[in-house]
């Protein structure tokens, strides 16, 4: 029963979503299941927050290695929640100026917007910027001319890397018009639009079939391993 009910929920919701794409009369069911998912996902946040609090509090109380970080995590979590829910520093909505809490939590000038602007934006941008460093070390290690395929890959990498910058113009910009197709910037576009597109389409078709087969396995109840491996009780 523990696995039967989720399986039937998946089957009914899955078929409702599928049919709503083709039969306008069933659109309502598709939309309703979409909305139910949003509600369930919102409720799950409580479980997520509970897990976060439980694990970090346990770490602090046991004085595990790095418990200080847990304390910082919980403090930031509680502070952001307080600032957001309490609408600290939020100017009232122009339409309801008499009501101090009528403004949006992230309105300009609010504490929440300040945390976003001066806390979150720099931190996440820094994490994203790390990619440049990791790409460089991965390229240094992975691009080795081991065989013919690797040499082709390497040559393509050179063309695209140079063609996507001003270096391509400097190196091959002097090519006469009849050979303009060989200019690095044009070659890189050609590689992206033709070879890359052809390969990507093949992968996309394979993925689409894989998604269809996987969805069908779940909808027919053939694959239940998303509820755990082994046993069908």
């Amino acid at each position: 029963m523990r696995r039967l009910i989720p399986m039937w929920i998946a089957i009914i919701a899955g078929f409702a979503m599928l049919f709503s794409a083709f039969f306008p009369v069933t659109e309502f069911f598709g939309e309703t299941f979409g909305e139910i998912f949003s509600v369930v996902a919102a409720i799950a946040y409580v479980l997520g927050a509970g897990s976060l609090a439980k694990i970090n509090l346990a770490k602090i109380s046991r004085r595990d290695q790095g418990w200080g970080y847990s304390a910082i995590t919980l403090f930031c979590f509680a502070a952001t929640l307080f600032v957001g829910l309490g609408k600290i520093g939020v100017p009232p909505n122009a339409q309801f100026a008499a009501l101090p809490w009528s403004g949006e939590k992230n309105a300009e000038g609010s504490a929440f917007a300040w945390i976003y602007e001066y806390g979150l934006v720099p931190i996440t941008s820094t994490m994203f910027a790390l990619l440049a460093f990791y790409v460089a070390s991965a390229a240094f290690r992975a691009f080795r001319a081991k065989n013919l395929e690797a040499i082709l890959l390497l040559s393509t990498a050179f063309i695209v890397l140079l063609g996507r910058t001003f270096a391509g113009v400097v190196l091959t910009g002097w090519f006469p018009d009849w050979a303009s197709g060989l200019r690095l910037e044009n070659l890189s576009v050609y590689i992206m639009q033709v070879f890359n597109t052809a390969g990507n389409r093949a992968i996309i078709i394979g993925i689409a079939l894989g998604v269809t087969a996987t969805s069908l396995r779940i909808l027919l109840g053939v694959d239940r391993s998303w509820m755990g491996s082994g046993g069908n009780s």
Binding site: A136, A139, F140, F143, L154, A157, F158
Partner: peptide
């Protein structure tokens, strides 16, 4: 730099 690194790696 990436081009240079790839050449050095090779």
């Amino acid at each position: 730099l990436m081009v240079a690194l790839i050449i050095l790696g090779n």
